[in-house]
Every structure is written in structure tokens, then in C-alpha cells.
């Protein structure tokens, strides 16, 4: 597999919780690469190390051994401040239970990462409301999370994840709390973020409904990759060239391997869902 500088790369990652007789290996030498424009699904039973792997790829912790590189920047040896900056600039998170901020309205939830980055309120509001419109939530802009349905909340969470235009989206069981219709809609959005916008999308999920949406699947057991399948959806030449153009545009817009808004596709991502 070709490893471009924009890829999310895990090389021989080892991580153990506890010490001595209480040591519990979580990862025992995991290697994988996720490329821009690709949806990678990570599967495995409970306790297999999926979540730990997600934490490494999310710049939340470092491996004991091995290396994690996010879009060309290794996380090894970075201070907590630099790791936070990396999360803020390069990664968008989608959680199983949405993790929306209950005290903020829908548009304010999307504006939160922009506020953390330091964007002024007016620009953040404009960007947030544009994303709400793209996700079919324009009429819910002033609603609080508890006033939204599960599907609306997850779409809002995805919108928040891409508000700051990160090149990497990490989604933890993004459809587990949704019904079939909403689950498929969210899965399609995530796929579009990869295929149409050239982002790296990594899903951790048990949901078999996601399988048709992914490009590759990796199965982990006992902290090791035991199976790798894919690509499930061979890309056409036309799609490959579109992706190359998107990646080039993202690189040119950011200048550091980060995604730029110029690469993002405008227009509605979804029409109507509950």
C-alpha cells in the first residue's frame, strides 16, 4: 500500500496498561495505514484493542513502542499541548452517544471547535449555519440537543466534527445508537466525507450495515490485526483522479498537509431525515 504524507499511519504500535503482574497488553504490534479518500473500518470483539487504537490515532495517547503519524506528523514525544493542537487542527471526532454540549444550541455546538481555535463569533456562526444547512438541519439551528432526534443529533455531531475542516475523521460506533434509516444516512455522510472531500475516515464499529460503505476492513483480536479485507469498493479511474485533485487542493489550501476548505464540497449532504 502506498503511504502518502497525508495518510494516517500506525507502525508496529504496542501499548500495555498497568505494570508488572498487573500488566495488560492492549496492542501487541498493530500496523495500519488509512489514506485520504478512504473509509477504513476497524472491527473486533470487546477488549480487542479497538478503542485503544482509536485513542492512538486520535492523538490522545502515545504508544509504548512503535509510531503513529497523522498526516505526516508523528505523535511520539509531543507535549500534551501539541497533542491537543493536533487533535484540534487535524482530527474530527464522532462518538456513539453524540457527546454534544447540552447547554449549547445546535449551531453553537458546531461553532465550539471554531471558538477553541480562535475564530471570531460571526465567522463561526456563519460556518456553523452553513454546515447545518448542508446536513439538513437549518431549521434546527437554535434547538438544544435534547430537542433533536437521535439521527439529527448524530448529523449535528458529524457537522461539528468537520466544522474546523480536519483531514481525519475518527468515528466510534457512529451508527450504534441510530435506527436503520438514520444509521444509513449517517454512514453515507461519513462515506461522502472520504470519497467526495478526500478526508481519511476511520470507523470503529460492530455494525454490519456499515460494511457496504467502507473501502477496507481490519479485524483486531487480542491487540493484533488478524484480518485485513478490501478494498471492498474498487475505485474507478474517474474517482481516483477526482480524489487526487481534492487531495492536491487540500494540500494547497493548508500548506501543511491539513485539509483546506477549498476542497470541501458545497451543497446539501442530506435532504430530509427525522
Amino acid at each position: 500500500m502506498i503511504q502518502t504524507p497525508e495518510s494516517l499511519i500506525v507502525e508496529d504500535a504496542v501499548l500495555t496498561y498497568g505494570k508488572g503482574e498487573f500488566a495488560t497488553p492492549a496492542l501487541r504490534g498493530v500496523s495500519l495505514t488509512a489514506k485520504p479518500g478512504e473509509v477504513l473500518l476497524i472491527r473486533g470483539p470487546s477488549g480487542s484493542g479497538k478503542t485503544t487504537l482509536l485513542q492512538l490515532m486520535g492523538a490522545m495517547k502515545e504508544p509504548d513502542k512503535g509510531k503513529v503519524s497523522i498526516c505526516g506528523t508523528p505523535t511520539t514525544g509531543l507535549s500534551q499541548k501539541r497533542l491537543r493542537a493536533m487533535r484540534l487542527n487535524r482530527i474530527g471526532f464522532v462518538f456513539q452517544f453524540f457527546n454534544l454540549l447540552s447547554s449549547l444550541r445546535a449551531w453553537e455546538n458546531i461553532a465550539a471547535p471554531l471558538d477553541i481555535i480562535g475564530m471570531d463569533r460571526g465567522a463561526a456562526e456563519k460556518r456553523a449555519k452553513a454546515l447545518l444547512a448542508e446536513f439538513g438541519l437549518a431549521d434546527r439551528a437554535d434547538h438544544f440537543p435534547k430537542q433533536l432526534s437521535g439521527g439529527q443529533r448524530q448529523r449535528l455531531a458529524v457537522a461539528r466534527a468537520i466544522a474546523h475542516d480536519p483531514p481525519v475523521i475518527l468515528a466510534d460506533e457512529p451508527t450504534a445508537a441510530l435506527d436503520t434509516e438514520n444509521g444509513q444516512a449517517v454512514a453515507q455522510i461519513l462515506r461522502d466525507l472520504a470519497v467526495k472531500e478526500g478526508r481519511i475516515v476511520v470507523l470503529v464499529s460492530h455494525d454490519h450495515r456499515l460494511e457496504p460503505m467502507v473501502d477496507r476492513e481490519i479485524t483486531i483480536e487480542d491487540g493484533r490485526v488478524v484480518e485485513e479485507r478490501g478494498p471492498a469498493r474498487p475505485k474507478s479511474n474517474a474517482l481516483r483522479s477526482t480524489l487526487s485533485a481534492l487531495i492536491e487542493a487540500r494540500r494547497a489550501a493548508s500548506g501543511d498537509g491539513r485539509g483546506g476548505s477549498g476542497a470541501r464540497q458545497e451543497g446539501p449532504r442530506i435532504s430530509s431525515l427525522s
Binding site: R84, A85, R87, L88, F95, N99, P113, I116
Partner: peptide
């Protein structure tokens, strides 16, 4: 705490 953890995961510093 869960909401503060979410903000931290997104990239908010302790100062925020």
C-alpha cells in the same frame, strides 16, 4: 465532566 472531556478531546486546553 463528560462534556468537559469532549471539549478536551476536541482540543480545548485546560485554560479554556
Amino acid at each position: 465532566l463528560a462534556e468537559y472531556a469532549t471539549l478536551t478531546a476536541i482540543g480545548a486546553g485546560t485554560g479554556y
